[in-house]
Design a protein around this nucleic acid. Sequence first.
DNA 1: TAGCCATGTCATTCA
DNA 2: TGTGAATGACATGGC
Length: 746
Amino acid sequence: MLYLKKYFTEGLIQFTILLSLIGVRVDVDSYLNNQLPPLREIILGPSSAYTQTQFHNLRNTLDGYGIHPKSVDLDHFFATRRLLNQVRQLDRLSVPSPELNAWLVHRDSETVVSTSSQSSPSIPLDNGAGLEDVSNPDATLAMRGGSGAPESTYNLNATDSSLGAVAPEGNEQQASRDGNDDLTKEDIDLIDILWRQDIDLGAGREVFNYSNRQKENEGEKASPCQDKDRTEEQESWRNGVNLQAAQPVDGETGESIPEQFQAPVVNPEIGANEEAPSTSQGLSMAPQLAPAPEPQLDLEQQWQDIMAIMELQAMEVNSTSLSPAADGAPESNTAGTFELSTGATPVNQDVSLHQASLPSCSQDFPQMFSPQLGSVPRTLMPRISSSNSSNITSTFGTTNLTGLFLPSHVNGSSSNLTSTPALADPFSTLLEESMLDEISLLDLAMEEGFSQAQASQLEDELDSDSGLSLDSSRSPASPSSSEEEGAVGYSTDSEVAPAEPEEGAVGGHQPGYSKLCRMSYQDPSQFHGLPQLDGISHNHTYNLPLSSAFSEHPDLPVPSGKKTVRDKQHSKLPPHADLLDKHASRDERRARAMKIPFSNDKIINLPVEEFNELLAKHHLSEAQLALIRDIRRRGKNKLAAQNCRKRKLDTIIKLEQGVQELRRDKARLLKEKMEFIRSLRQMKQKMQSLYQEVFTQLRDEEGRPYPPSQYSLQYSADGSVLIAPRSLATAEQNRKPEKKQKDKKK
DNA sequence: TAGCCATGTCATTCA
DNA sequence: TGTGAATGACATGGC
């Protein structure tokens, strides 16, 4: 980590030097002192709770690497690395390629966390480059004399101030000139390229002037009108409304184009790339798109390796979890989502990056942060979310991007629908339908993945709880159990029963296990400290009447939520008797009233023989005997009813699973059918072409070709091919159906 | 207060 | 024939 920090620091220093070469005065100390997290955190260490980790791709499957994917350090590494790369590569010819840069920028906690593509003017981009502020296009116009032709009137000096200069406007040109004094030709070329990026935008750099924000923050030279606009924008932003949600971006640079400059954009290249992803950083993403081989630091190489691995993993996740349309079909991802570029460069990196950043747009956001996020003011969260979501919207229009980053079942099939490439053949409709069907079913399967887990869990419970062996390991109703333990040793649940002092003539201790099982039914979390009970998650309490366990330990908290209401209602009663009454069933109360000398649990759960012995031991009245038999009958029936209901649920769940399975099978078979049809069609086409080829080469005795309208090739049964007049062939074909009909009649 | 749900109970059937 | 299990139907209470 220290190494990374050092690297960040070095990179930032390089970047700062570069900016100073351009003519921008960058005061690192002021950044640090002004409590701007990114620089400070990059250099001094991460402290931001708002860090958006870019590696939250789909399921956070990137474990096991040197840098944890969720490490906030990676974010800084990402941001800094990309900034540096892009700056370094600005002097190269840029070729648009499908790259989506997910920038991560930060601000102090007072304002907003933003991703790069966020073009909202209210988001300061304190990324260390001191880059853009798109909130002040008016100033740009003014500086350019309000020209509608920005290409021709671009003010280079004005651009200087946009690159993070904190010098007053009046000094900008001087500062720029001062800075240019030391420029080499290479630097100048680099600066020219930088400026051209914005010229292509039709906007000067001053549009993205970071210094404007600085000035505004300092209360210097900001016009009231600008303040008002900015305040409104910030408010709207805080309200989760991105006023510039549909703001276009420069396809070449990925920058957000201020609305004032959308019309004048005449650069055809921009038009061709108008769907390019947006990075509102103001730094060109284009140079990075054509990375020329250059000597890399070892760390860079390592970083590339990390990136490659992560991309592969992201692709794996995509290919396994998304629709089959995504299999080897990058365009499937691009449809409506990643169709952002020209050229055929794979979008793997883009995908991973995008996936890495976008989950934060919605519900995944809180989980993506470090535990410190818990301390993030809640008021910040909506802004974070809205910034990201609006970001997406601004970049991709109304396309439903979330489908790529949320589980497909969340997104439904919409993204899949858009991602299914159109097929040219006549079967495309059917095939598409089939594939879509399957896709939707795969979505269902993903849904089912969840329900299956639940179902299997429930199934396990059901299996283990089947029958009276709900407490399967120790069921008192189990003959084996009773045989092992004997009448006296009938000590599991039957031991619970004597816990009722009034009822139980047969004493017994309350085994902790049973007690805990009872409690586990109510609150499994109470057993976290009991490793021996880790494996106990089932509800084995059906044959453990609540009153039994509770009566022995009336000081125990009432575990049942349902009982609590009743508890409150009876809270004025004497504690012990009240609790006994409260948690005693009707039969238990009756048994107490009739002075039955043993517990209801015993009455219910003892095997017949032992039960009869127990009755024989005591001299009971007819009323008592009748009550005992009723208690036994009802108790057993109660358990039976519970088991019956569980079985019903189990059956329903299994049926649902069966339905899902059948649907998957149907989709798979349909897909296979379509593939067969397509294959058959291809074979027919091949056959037709071969037929034509052979036919055209045939000649009669005079060397003339046979007219296809009069002759055709006939295939005989022995495999030979004959040429015959079409009329003859037609007649033969007509005979065959007649023969078949005759055969059928026979 | 109606509706839903969980649970208990009864009656019945079956092995 | 007694017993237990299974299940439909109904009642009840909580939310």
